[in-house]
């Protein structure tokens, strides 16, 4: 078997199953577990999930591709998600997107060559009062300006570099 849940994830999966009336109903949390474990949902991962839930691979693929927060490709270590919904755009989100594209050398939807940053535009993050907002992985960063965002990026790049040098 090419792809398989780790023992720990499998235990969580078993626990998820107990919360739903049918296996099919557990598809979203199971995909979430899979993304957490493997970073993204490759065809092989989707087939494994289909196997676990007695569903067809086509069904799992259909569900997984419906949701933008399920990644179908490998993502960078830091996923930078810029809200470009109304409030954030009025407060300069587009400028933030442009300066991020310049700084990272990638377009929205792409990942840097060193696999550290992925850049996305996202819909409302529900924090209009502190617009513009960006979300990096699971953390919100509020009231952003191009300068503050670039500061965050520099800091994350530094951390990533020191992690890779200390790791080598």
């Amino acid at each position: 078997m090419a792809v398989q849940f780790s023992e720990e994830t499998h235990k969580q999966f078993e626990d998820v199953l107990t919360r739903y009336p049918t296996k099919q109903a557990a598809i979203l949390p199971t995909l979430w577990l899979a993304q957490t474990e493997f970073g993204y949902l490759s065809p092989a991962v989707m087939e494994h999930v289909a196997d676990l839930l007695d569903l067809s691979p086509a069904y799992v693929h259909g569900v997984a591709t419906f949701y933008t927060m399920f990644y179908k490709e490998p993502m960078g270590k830091c996923h930078v998600q810029v809200c470009t919904n109304l409030s954030c755009t009025l407060r300069g989100a587009e400028k933030i997107v442009h300066c991020l594209e310049d700084r990272l050398g990638v377009k929205v939807g792409q990942t840097t060559g060193d696999k550290i940053f992925s850049l996305s535009e996202v819909e409302c993050l529900g924090s209009c009062g502190t617009a513009p907002v960006i979300q990096i992985n699971d953390d919100y960063h509020e009231n952003q300006t191009p300068e503050s965002t670039l500061g965050l990026i520099d800091e994350l790049a530094r951390q990533a570099e020191s992690a890779s040098t200390s790791g080598s």
Binding site: E47, S56, P57, A58, H61, G62
Partner: peptide, 27 residues
């Protein structure tokens, strides 16, 4: 494929203007 023959090969992926018919995991 899914309901009549119950072969479950064909699926419906993505959404909006990108929605498309797929075989297994878009093979």
């Amino acid at each position: 494929c899914r309901e009549e023959q119950v072969n479950d090969v064909i699926g419906y992926a993505l959404r909006g203007s990108q929605a498309k018919i797929i075989f297994d995991v878009d093979d």
